[in-house]
Design a protein around this nucleic acid. Structure first.
Length: 260
DNA sequence: CCTATAGCCTGACGGC
DNA sequence: TGCCGTCAGGCTATAG
């Protein structure tokens, strides 16, 4: 389930493999993956161009060709593959470079989107995306301001892309587990210190995960992610892990150290 | 403003 | 072996 750290890794992968290469052909293998652009138009837009830069905002990847932008959203099962030979099983769009290699956007479940926005900033504005939590401008005062006017479960806010762009179900749970806050805790009842802890923890977890994935390592042992099962033991305090639904998503937390 | 639900989509998995 | 129901969770739309 690609969230911010996974999409950051895709950006780096894209940059390592797919920049500065002439795109000979584009193959849209399943048109359902496209947003507001038709197959023929999409293919024709990229043929003869080359990608020159990649950037990310939240869970969204943008690749620039100089005048045309490619936007990738990975949904739940989106993936990138740079390859030679046969396209992977779930490839939906393939860019054929003139060096004989290819870049595929794969998506088994089709929750992802491939399209051609005017540019990243207008895309972000049009979709009312909030700030990226790893952006320089995303300071603690900014985070406090975002929460100040809101109520409701903290987990819902962390997952709302219009408030913060990039946090999904797993990292929301991980952040709250780390800060000992119950996922249903109302935002207006968080102490200043808890808000600060959530801010710091969220950013540390995102950065730590990116760094570890970059060198092929897994999640640290202390993470909740290894214990996403009702009744499992909490790796921190030995409490029992609870399973519930918040914001329509399966949510895990520790009954003992994340009290409401 | 906030919450809940359905729907999109398909492979994995448990049960029979 | 294979069929069936359920689950996974990215997002949007809609209703309450």
């Amino acid at each position: 389930m690609p969230e911010l750290p996974e999409v950051e890794i895709y950006c780096r992968y894209f940059a390592r493999h797919a920049l500065q290469q002439n795109i000979e052909h584009v193959r849209v293998l399943d048109e359902r993956i496209l947003g507001d652009v038709r197959k023929e138009k999409f293919e024709q837009l990229f043929e003869g161009r080359e990608f020159v830069a990649v950037r990310r905002h939240g869970k969204h990847l943008f690749a620039e060709t100089g005048d045309v932008w490619l936007h990738l959203h990975f949904g739940m099962t989106g993936d990138l593959a740079y390859f030679r030979g046969d396209a992977p099983r779930f490839a939906k769009v393939v860019f054929d470079f003139d060096n004989g290699s290819h870049l595929a956007f794969e998506d088994m479940r089709l929750f992802g989107i491939v399209d051609v926005p005017p540019d990243p900033n207008s895309f972000i504005a049009d979709h009312h995306l909030g700030p990226d939590p790893l952006d320089r401008a995303f300071t603690l005062p900014v985070f406090r301001r975002l929460l100040a006017t809101r109520r409701g479960a903290i987990k819902s806010l962390l997952m709302s892309q219009e408030i913060i762009a990039g946090i999904g179900n797993l990292y929301a749970d991980e952040t709250l587990f780390d800060t000992s806050v119950h996922p249903r805790r109302s935002v207006d009842r968080l102490s200043d210190d808890q808000v600060k802890k959530i801010y710091q923890s969220m950013r540390r977890i995102l950065r730590e995960t990116i760094a570890r994935k970059e060198r092929g390592a897994g999640y640290p042992k202390r993470y909740l992610i290894h214990h996403r099962e009702e009744g499992d033991r909490c790796p921190r305090c030995g409490g029992s892990i609870a399973r519930t639904v918040v914001f329509g998503r399966t949510t895990y937390f520790c009954r003992k150290h994340q009290r409401l």
